[in-house]
């Protein structure tokens, strides 16, 4: 038989504080260790390299993405050539850095034309972003 005391025990509230603590720790870990960035296009295969310098955090930069077909995207969304030109000029005025994330299968000409446009817009620093190891 079930003792009557079991009923009283079921009313005892479960402590959720350990659960909250663990979840808060996970949130903090993701906030500190991870980098919040715009998602890459579907099927994007990033460039790979082993000798590049680590990309510093918290710097003033604008991310351009070159897809496999050679299309250029600005901060994760497709942009026209006019928008790109305006973004390059705005970046040059603020003294920011151009960061190009290119698909490894993208035409080299598309990437180099973008870098040349950045140079024409008087952007002082432009880099190609690669990945050290597959995510």
């Amino acid at each position: 038989m079930t003792p009557l005391r079991a009923t009283a025990a079921s009313h005892k509230p479960d402590s959720t504080l350990p659960l909250i603590n663990i979840v808060l720790l996970l949130v903090l870990a993701f906030m500190i260790a991870g980098t919040v960035a715009a998602p890459l296009p579907e099927g994007f295969d990033p460039l790979q390299s082993m000798r590049g310098a680590p990309q510093p955090r918290g710097e003033n930069r604008v991310d351009f993405t070159v897809t496999q077909s050679g299309d250029v995207q600005l901060n994760g969304s497709a942009a026209s050539s006019k928008d790109l030109q305006a973004a390059l000029e705005a970046l040059a005025e603020t003294g920011g850095k151009l960061s190009v994330k290119a698909d490894s299968r993208a035409p080299a000409s598309a990437v180099m034309e973008l870098l040349a446009d950045a140079e024409t817009a008087n952007i002082k620093e432009a880099v190609v972003v690669t990945i050290g190891s597959k995510p």
């Binding site: 310098a53 870098l115 140079e119």
Partner: peptide, 16 residues
């Protein structure tokens, strides 16, 4: 949204 990829940068200068 977090990315843990090991991003690196290469200074690729165009001929221009």
């Amino acid at each position: 949204v977090s990315q843990f990829a090991d991003w690196r940068q290469i200074d690729l200068r165009p001929q221009a």
